[in-house]
Design a protein around this nucleic acid. Structure first.
Lengths: 194, 194
DNA sequence: CCTTAAAGCTAATGGCATTAGCTGGCGCCG
DNA sequence: CGGCGCCAGCTAATGCCATTAGCTTTAAGG
């Protein structure tokens, strides 16, 4: 028994490899153990159970995405920062559709690492919007809209929801345009119908 | 054996009941059979397998959502139609979070009922945008953006992604405002950076 | 060396999907 | 009215997966 030398991080690495190759649904303790060259129950020495593994994967992916976004935002501000954010967000989702999906599907309510990573991500979105001079609750509203737009687009694009032949780059440009112009014109009053 | 009188539709009904009560993850053939008062393998007389049941559920939900949207759009046009669309879309997702999630998670590539229902839904979105005088590919781009925004918001809201205390109605109003203004100002040229 | 904790293993359980093959009730045709 | 066939339901069996329990071995450190 040559000692596989596993660790929680190593287990997550293997899970990510499976996700990249066969999608999130293929992540099973048996599959991970197979890659590790280890019997399935051995994984329990590193991970509490499958649910925890999924959480760890989710956190890892969120942090990875956060890193990409932070890097994209470095030294940029205003419209340029927003454009860089959206570009980087979409690029990550398209380049890593499995990971992106794995991130989304994790259970939300938790006070642990999951929530911390999500908060960090939200903080980055807020950062991308700095420079638009938003105050108070408007920051929250704009952040939510940006998340909704970016996530919605990413889901549709990575899930193959765009069947028609039109260029998705142009679509993304329109989405970006909507956010920009919507943030520029603060008009918000009679819209309270909602 | 009193003849349970099942049918594919009845099986889907039971699955929907489970989804409404315990979420999409609880939909298992064993659970459905339990509700039907039938042994698990009996379900295979009505449904090819679990995957097909999920597809049928997805189609049913898409059609249900499509009905709500169509009804909301009746007799409306322009901004009013768009507002009604978004309102109805969000209302459905919030009122039926389990069903909404079940719809999204189904496998996309197919030439069958799944694709037909999805196309119908897209057609409704296109209809909601009629009146903005969009031509050619712009129709597609606007449709995709509207879908992305509505879906992204619905996912975030139903998954509890909005942790902060700000009013989600106000956020939705901003999202609506972004779409309106973005459609109004056709500016799209240098954005080709994407 | 020898101890000990961690890392692995095997065995066992229970849930689930799925397949095969049997059976009985009901509609329909004569 | 009686028989026939089909269809819906059943039981049995298989295989995969997660998870638990308890044993064994490795390797690190005194």
């Amino acid at each position: 028994m040559a000692r596989a030398g596993l660790s929680p991080d190593a287990v997550v690495d293997l899970a990510l490899a499976i996700i990249d190759e066969d999608g999130p649904a293929a992540v099973t303790l048996a599959a991970v153990a197979g890659r590790a060259g280890v019997a399935t129950p051995s994984l329990y020495k590193h991970v509490r159970n499958l649910a925890e593994l999924n959480d760890l994967v989710s956190v890892r992916v969120m942090n990875e995405l956060a890193d990409r976004l932070r890097e994209a935002l470095l030294g940029r501000s205003g419209d340029e920062a927003l454009r860089a954010f959206m570009h980087a967000y979409r690029d990550y989702a398209v380049a890593n559709p499995g990971r992106y999906a794995a991130m989304s599907q994790a259970a939300p309510p938790e006070g642990g690492a999951q929530a911390k990573a999500a908060d960090a991500l939200v903080g980055i979105v807020v950062g991308a919007l700095r420079g638009y001079g938003l105050k108070g609750a408007d920051v929250i509203h704009a952040t939510r809209c940006l998340r909704a737009a970016a996530h919605g687009f990413a889901v549709l694009e990575t899930a193959g929801g765009f069947g028609l032949p039109a260029d998705t780059d142009d679509t993304y440009a329109l989405l970006h345009h909507m956010i920009i112009t919507g943030l520029a014109k603060p008009a918000r009053s009679q819209d309270r119908t909602f």
